[in-house]
Amino acid sequence: MAENGRDNIILIEDLYYSRGQKRIFNGLDIAFQRGKITAVMGPSGTGKTTLLRLITGQLVPERGRILIDGQDITALQRNELYELRKRFGMLFQNGALLTDLSVFENVAFPLREHTKLPERLIKHIVLTKLHAVGLRGAAELVPSELSGGMARRVALARAMVMDPDILIYDEPFTGLDPISLGVVLRLIKRLNDSLGITSIVVSHDVEETSSIADESYLISEGQVVASGTPSELKTHGNAVVQQFLSGMADGPVPFHYPGRDYKDQLLDRD
């Protein structure tokens, strides 16, 4: 959907969502451009993963619209939603591989579920995807035999096996060693550039995410506090942005969780 010279594939407007008594999103507006890598960053607990679950229709917002190519997913029936999800690929924080299947069968899983392709073709596609993430040789291993970085690469192969339009990465760099991190980082960039996929990267790893993102959003307190290219964010005047980017312990985002007065609590004074 072209708007202000932008070709937005996903448009989120005036989004409200609460978990229990806690308001997570408070009138959130975000647009994801087609074919670009967009980073969504923010302090822990700001609802980044919740945002992904809203975009993929796993959660339903209280108010607002989530348009994917102009189609409001909050108004879709279950079967329409499942049809739309075939356009998505998602990389979960922990890989979320099916533990009772081998690496090969994990990657083949969406193909077996959604297509009637002959076995030879399935083998060809799966090995191609595994080769792309450097794990063709690990096809016969089971998830319990994989390291964290390998599991994430297998999950990435699985996420792209149906050739999705949109690839969503939930904290793809968390807990990876520098080599695995570099591999995943390059894979995200390469997949995006070579296949023309729209990528959404949710992360709080500022350096890594900024190095590949075309555009970044920083969310805090249920709203977007800053957006733009990584270099624009660096010079942003907002105190939350600066605290987040520089990693200061205390600031607008407090170090201490709100509670009673420290002295009163120690002295048991009500």
């Binding site: 993929t56 796993q58 999800r85 899983f109």
Partner: peptide, 12 residues
């Protein structure tokens, strides 16, 4: 371990 969520997202 998010395996059920992963399935939902794979439209399964």
């Amino acid at each position: 371990t998010d395996q059920l969520s992963a399935m939902e997202l794979m439209a399964v």
